Each structure stands twice: as C-alpha cells, then as structure tokens.
Amino acid sequence: MASPFQVQKITTLTGHRDCVYTLERAPETHKFFSAGADGMVALWDLTQPEHGELVAKVSSSVYALKYVEERNWLLIGHNHNSLEVLDLSAKAIVKTIPLPSAAIFDIQYCWETQRAYLALGDGTLQIIDLEKLEVQQAVRLSEKSVRCLALHPTKPELAVGLSDNRILVLETSALRGKHVLENHTGSVFTLAYTPDGNYLLSGSRDAHLRVWDAENEYREHASIIAHLFTLNHITFSPNGRLFATCSMDKSVKVWDAQSFKLLKVIDKARHAGHGTSVNKLFWSAHWNQLVSCSDDRSIAVWALTLKEI
C-alpha cells in the first residue's frame, strides 16, 4: 500500500550533552522545550531551529516537563526530591516543591482543578495544588514505579501506567479505582487518550501497542506488536487523524488513528533517523512537524507532507 505522506528530516538539533528524555509544548506553536540527563532545559524555535535557548539548569536528570498555559509556568520534574516551578515570563523559579527522593517519570495537569499529577518512581501518585504550590495528596499505587499518566479529555478519569504491568483508571476527584487493565506483560511506559476520548492507547516494555475501548468498560479493542523493543511514547497529530509511536528499537512509526494501521516507519536506514533509543515525541501544529528526541543526545525535526489525509 502506498503511504499517504512523505517524510523528510528537516534538521537535527544538538546542544544537549547527554541523553534527551523529554519534549514539551511551549507558549507558541512553533516552539518547544527539551530536557534530559544533563539537567538542562532548552527552548527551541522551529522557525530558527539552530538556536536553542537555555531556560533552566537543574541538578539532576529531567524525565518530565509540563507547560501550564494559564500561568505561563513550566513544571520541571527532576530526580532530586523536588518539583521546580519555572515562571517563563520572569525567567525565575517561583517554587521548589519538596517530594520523596524518587524519579518523576510523568506530569499531567488539569486546568479545571488547578492540580498537577506526578508519576513517581517510588510507586506513588503525587497531587500538587498549583494555587497553593504544595503537595495536596500522595497515593501509593504500587510497590514498583508509576511510569505514565493520561487525563481523559472530557471525563474525570486519570489513567495510570505502572511498572508492575498494570494500568489503573482512577476517578480524579477522590482517586478511586474504576478499572484495572492487566494485559501488558511489561512495564507500561506511555498512555494517550484519543482526542475524542473514545479510546485509551498504551505502550509497554513488551513492545505492544494496546487499544482500550474507554466507552465500553475499557475492554481491549486491539493488541498490536508495534515495535521490536520497548514502546516509549505515543503522541497524536494536531488534527487527531494520526498518531506516532517511538521505541527503544530506534524507530518512530506513524499510524492511522481510525484504523490503527501502520502508515510509515521513520528510522536510520530509511530517513537517517536516530542511532539509539527514541524517548519522546512532540507533534507541532507548526507545519505539521514531528519532533523526536533520543539517547543519542540529538533532537530530530521531521516534515510529514500529507497527500490525502
């Protein structure tokens, strides 16, 4: 089957001195943040990609960033017992919120409740009140790490991926358990709801992409052997018609969000892709550009020229 689009690497961004673990949206659609093992948080402009701006430097690795639009804050989750709250307008840390000494693997934010949810390596879900800038609640969910989080786009539900292979779906206000999904055979590293909220997608160390029917008691809708090794991240295109996955197998794959069919493989052999694990993706509304980051210390920017989609 002919692919509905072509892929072209636009540029490679270098500047990080170690593995790049995470990417996050910025205030403008043509900009994004990156962070990784060197503790540096950088801001990049897709219209001038060769110029990265250092916006923060923290004392340890950063696995998770979250932009809070209403306050123009960037939440920086680093592995040194705290969450840093960076005011982007003032270019200053407004608060360092103490946390247990564990890696912060993921951060999600709910603007309606002004709460941030943090996935920690000690098996706890930490809830941060962003008005008071303090920990509101901590819930132990597992003896192993809490790895990833996803907020339902319309319902008060939070999906939580764990290193004990389970996915928990919690009701957000009281954090009561609603569903337990146990089909993965490895740590669950990434979760993403479809933009309409009908399905939850999950990726795991078992290399499978699983699709759960959120409208039907989260029954498994599909199980796909998506990659050769750990599936690290899932992200949707700005129009919601496509999604992309990335993996420890060094590849990025693009899928149809309706049929869950594979459309394109982006790798080193075909497109001069990454040389090591691809850790995170960011799909920009700026010219539909897809950004990937890797253990190879680089960030790649891809142009997807759509034919019919």
Rank of each mutant, 00 (worst) to 15 (best):
A2S: 01
F5E: 00
T11Q: 07
T11W: 08
T12G: 07
C19T: 11
L23M: 12
P27Y: 07
P27D: 12
K31S: 09
S34H: 10
S34L: 11
G36N: 02
G36E: 03
L46S: 05
L46M: 13
T47K: 15
Q48T: 13
P49N: 06
L54M: 10
V58N: 05
S60C: 13
S61C: 10
W73M: 04
L75F: 07
H78Y: 13
H80L: 12
N81I: 06
S89P: 02
A90N: 06
P98I: 05
G121E: 14
G123W: 14
T124I: 13
Q126H: 13
D129Q: 11
K132N: 14
Q137A: 12
A138D: 10
R140G: 10
C148P: 03
T154A: 10
L158M: 10
V160W: 05
N165Q: 14
I167T: 08
R176K: 14
G186V: 03
A192K: 00
N198Q: 14
L200G: 11
L201G: 06
S202K: 10
R205M: 01
E217M: 13
I225C: 11
H227M: 07
F229V: 01
P238C: 14
T245Q: 04
S247A: 04
D249C: 03
S251P: 06
A257P: 05
Q258W: 00
S259P: 02
F260A: 01
K264M: 14
N279E: 14
L281I: 13
W283A: 02
H286V: 10
N288F: 06
Q289L: 11
D295W: 03
A300P: 00
K307G: 08
